[in-house]
Nucleic acid binder design. Structure first.
Length: 527
RNA sequence: CGGGGCGUAGCGCAGUCCGGUAGCGCGCCUGCUUUGGGAGCAGGAUGUCGGAGGUUCGAAUCCUCUCGCCCCGACCA
């Protein structure tokens, strides 16, 4: 499943404790192998028979469902409603907006026929079933949605129109990676229509805030809000705002975008409304989206060499109970207690799994649930029953310098009086949620530099591992390309004013051209 | 589209150079013993060797064609 060939030199570096069972390549050996191993071991997703398309397995899909719920609640709370539009877009719709069409032209799946037929005993595309107009499988839905909005919007009283869609989209990428870039992916796309530019701009910013809030408070992933340079803008947008996160290898991941589309799409679809003054005017638009790529961001932000780590707010299972027993009478007592503990925790709104499999030893269960990222494990054995305690084991504790794996394992485990344990678990989970965020933020800070010279820039990315570089920039698009060729870095975003740390504020001179620069941008290598 | 790799049991692979009864590990099934950090022993089941042609007494192996996937580049959320 992972890389077929390098397995030889890889296996020699695997954890010595692992004997027969497949394990996870340490991050220090190969970050990309580690990423794939975590996904395989946690049973999140796998490659499908279709090139570039993944199968999202139940555990991975549960995480996505949790994300959907949290996001959807936030969309509703900001006045949006859900709807659904077709996945097929007539070619002529897509080409109505020139920039947009050009931007997606190279990655479109196109439906050209509508029927199969047995020819010489072989079932194949019936050449006689050619469509008069090809249908493009949506790479994004602006054009088909705005075609419909034309019918829905006549007056300023019809505005704003605030609609979101949960859907799949297809972008025929040549290079794919599970969750991060797949030919088909799941996402949500908001498409709003407004009477004024001001209101549309506010919507664009508001939804970016929703994404940032979700990323930081639910995913525990710190992000920087900013805008893209013209070269990195969404095809057809006047302004693209984004949130950027840093992964554990120091690379940036765009975690969400919110676009101000101006009147580009309303003009393309001819959507006008009568304003209060009785004049016809084109509608102002926004669109915004996040995708299953966020699952990849989650993995790459928090997980460790033992596998997946999930923030409790997105964990499909909060607590797993592993029973320990020898004889039948022990099993009976332990199972009865496990059922009770489970019921009491469920009553607190937690999702609890009682792992009652009899064909697997406790140790094997420990490894399995840890690699799947369950935040808390409760071991229940006869000794605990006798003492009236619960054995709580956290999925992770914060690293202490020089600590051995064994010592850390001990520190993750605690024996707590039963009532106190059950009462305290929600607090522990909340603490873990916060620790994950703080840890990720501390990591990002440790890999962030304010850089003023090309020499320092080069040293940062070529010798010090790289990360986020705050640099002054006043270059052109060509200058950006030059930086990209030399250092494999791009401008991730022009941070919003309130995102800039005090030491990075103020004007200066462009790191490449020496021209005056009003503010710093973030440069990084990116996924 | 260029370069590389790989298709053999559910998964991971050996066997291919040099043609001769289809193998290994894990997993799976049965039984017994185990169970607080990846269990042990014994027995058992599992294959259109990616597909199609060809050479041959005989093809996983040689030849031709073909399909697919993965990795590296160009393109991208």
């Amino acid at each position: 499943m992972a890389s077929p060939n390098p397995s030889n030199d890889k296996s020699s570096q695997k954890a010595p404790a692992a004997k027969n069972e497949s394990s996870i390549t340490p991050r220090s050996v190969s970050y990309s192998d580690w990423y794939l191993d975590v996904i395989r071991q946690a049973e999140l997703a796998e490659h499908s028979a279709v090139r570039g398309c993944m199968v999202i397995r139940p555990h991975g899909y549960s995480i996505w469902e949790k994300m959907q719920r949290e996001l959807d609640d936030r969309f509703k709370a900001t006045g949006h409603v859900n709807a659904y539009f077709p996945m097929f877009i007539p070619l002529s719709f897509l080409t109505r907006e020139e920039q947009h069409a050009a931007g997606f032209a190279k990655e479109c799946a196109v439906v050209t026929h509508h029927r199969l037929k047995a020819i010489d005993g072989v079932v194949q595309v019936d050449p006689d079933s050619k469509l008069e107009e090809p249908l493009v499988v949506r790479p994004t839905s602006e054009t088909i949605i705005w075609n419909q909005y034309k019918n829905w919007i006549q007056s300023y009283r019809d505005l704003p129109l605030l609609i979101n869609q949960w859907a799949n989209v297809v972008r025929w990428e040549l290079r794919t990676r599970l969750f991060l870039r797949t030919a088909e992916f799941l996402w949500q796309e908001g498409h709003t229509a407004h009477a004024t530019e001001q209101e549309a701009l506010e919507e664009t910013a508001k939804m970016l805030d929703v994404y940032a809030d979700f990323a930081q408070n639910v995913m525990a992933v710190p992000v920087i809000k900013g805008r893209k340079t013209p070269g990195e803008r969404f095809a057809g947008a006047l302004d693209t705002m984004c949130i950027e996160a840093m992964m554990q290898d120091g690379k940036a991941l765009q975690a969400g975008t919110s676009h101000y589309l101006g009147q580009n799409f309303s003009k393309a679809a001819d959507v006008k409304f009568l304003n209060r003054e009785g004049k016809l005017e084109y509608v102002y638009a926004t669109s915004w989206g996040v995708s299953t790529r966020l699952v990849g961001a989650l993995i790459m932000t928090h997980s460790d060499d033992g596998g997946l780590i999930l923030p409790p707010k997105l964990a499909p299972i909060h607590v797993v109970i592993v029973p320990i027993y020898r004889k039948d009478d022990e099993k009976e007592r332990v199972f009865a207690e496990a059922d009770k503990v489970k019921a009491e925790l469920c009553a607190k709104g937690l999702t609890v799994k009682f792992d009652d499999r009899d064909n697997m030893q406790p140790g094997a269960k420990f490894y399995e649930w840890e690699s799947k990222g369950v935040p808390i494990r409760i071991e229940i054995g006869p000794k605990d029953l006798d003492k009236g305690v619960l054995c709580l084991v956290r999925r992770f504790v914060l690293d202490q310098p020089g600590e051995s794996v064994e010592d850390q394992r001990k520190r993750r485990k605690s024996f707590v009086p039963r009532a106190e344990a059950i009462e305290g678990i929600p607090t522990i989970l909340a603490g873990m949620q916060k620790e994950l965020y703080d840890r990720a933020l501390a990591f990002r800070n440790s890999r962030t530099r304010i850089i003023d010279t090309i020499e320092d820039f080069e040293r940062f990315f070529k010798q010090e591992g790289g990360g986020f570089a705050w640099v002054h920039w006043a270059g052109t698009g060509d200058d950006e390309d030059q930086m990209s060729k030399r250092f494999e870095t791009t401008i991730r975003c022009i941070p919003l004013p309130d995102q800039i740390p005090s030491e990075a504020q103020g004007s200066g001179t462009c790191i490449l051209t020496g021209k005056p620069s009003a503010q710093r941008v973030i440069m990084a290598k990116a996924y």
